[in-house]
Nucleic acid binder design. Structure first.
Lengths: 208, 208
DNA sequence: AGCCGTATCAGCCAAATGGCTGAGAGACCA
DNA sequence: TGGTCTCTCAGCCATTTGGCTGATACGGCT
């Protein structure tokens, strides 16, 4: 049987080298190309039609990982896309799965876990690092905590330090409506002040 | 002449593999050991006395990078320590240099930059990625923007979403004093609200 | 047709926050 | 000794924020 072809996408050269070295130990897996950006990833997918794309979500400039996933899916070549990233951000996980990722691994995953994920991905299995899976599970278990699109939009602006008045102007709604949304957001996040909301939002949104 | 001995410290296996692969291409550089944590790094330093320690600041559990640097320096074996990390956080840079790091490289640095930093480090030269250097420069140029220790302490608690009252209780000072500190912090950060202060603080403090 | 979720807005009131001025104590440095 | 920095505290007042209750409108689901 022929080896599984893999494309590595990460803006850090060392990470690509490391993955290449790791995957090189597996006879049934072959890295056929690397890309340092979303744009480059698209080119390489067209060029090599790899079976699996292993991709970091955080890419320096230009297209971000989510957008890249979406575009690759748009090529209709049915690659399995594995997200391989440093942070287990709630939002990123949901967005990545939404965009069409087959699995979500953290960078501190054990080599065996990575191999298994790649092998599983070509068979259509979806793989998650345990901590990632538990987060998703929690979100499903607790639908009350899911923000509506409008609330998420507001929260995102909130983390830029805007006042209620500014939020209203930015979103073309009254201050009263802003306050209503905020109250709902606080309840869902389990906080009581705007400061705490910003803190948890920024921390959840992908950093740490 | 004998090769420069290097210890790699990073909690991500792929990063260690990548660095090892990269450094392996240089005949005058030899990776003698790896460590996945600060604790392990100390053991390996004792064991191998490497000339250079290349270390990530962000380490999962246990001792963080800064603490590890401090401890290694405490061994009095005069290793040159190079910080090699993903984020160019103001606070981290200052603390790392303060703890005794010889250089500060970002993970997207070019291989030549990394090699040069290692070679420079053993000769006592200090090396910085250009973006890192420019940040440090800016801090030196603009001393008005440096927070006092107390202010920094307060800001750090602020990013946890505490109210003025809670801040006062936590620091054993009156609410009035809290407000004074906050006013100074806002002025130095160039913001006008607590929300904006939290936003800029968290973003500056190490993520992005 | 009725229900639920989402988004919009209003008014009221208590609490928190921010801007201002002023001031005392201790540390450090020239 | 005098100047500067840091940390501490006070009072006053305008603005902002948060909690509450209630209301309208639209869309989708049953």
């Amino acid at each position: 049987m022929s080896a599984i072809t893999v494309l590595l996408v990460d803006d850090h050269l060392v990470v690509r080298s490391g993955l290449r070295a790791l995957l090189g130990t597996q006879p049934d897996i072959t890295v056929v190309a690397e890309a340092a950006s979303g744009e480059e990833a698209l080119v390489q997918v067209r060029e090599h039609s790899p079976a699996v794309v292993v991709m970091d979500l955080a890419m320096g400039a230009g297209m971000d990982g989510i957008e890249a996933i979406r575009r690759i899916r748009g090529l209709n070549q049915r690659q399995a896309i594995l997200v391989f990233t440093t942070y287990d951000s709630d939002a990123d996980i949901v967005r990545a799965v939404d965009a069409g990722a087959m699995g979500y691994l953290l960078k501190d995953a054990a080599p065996e876990e990575i191999f298994a994920a790649i092998r599983g991905a070509v068979q259509g299995k979806s793989v998650m690092s345990p901590p990632v899976a538990s987060r998703l599970f929690q979100q499903l278990r607790n639908p009350d905590e899911i923000l509506t699109p409008r609330e998420a939009e507001l929260l995102s602006l909130l983390t830029e330090g805007l006042s209620n008045r500014e939020l209203g102007q930015r979103l073309f709604i009254s201050e009263a409506t802003v306050k209503t949304h905020l109250a709902h957001i606080y309840a869902k996040l389990g906080v009581e002040t705007r400061a705490a909301a910003i803190a948890t939002a920024i921390r959840r949104e992908g950093m740490r």
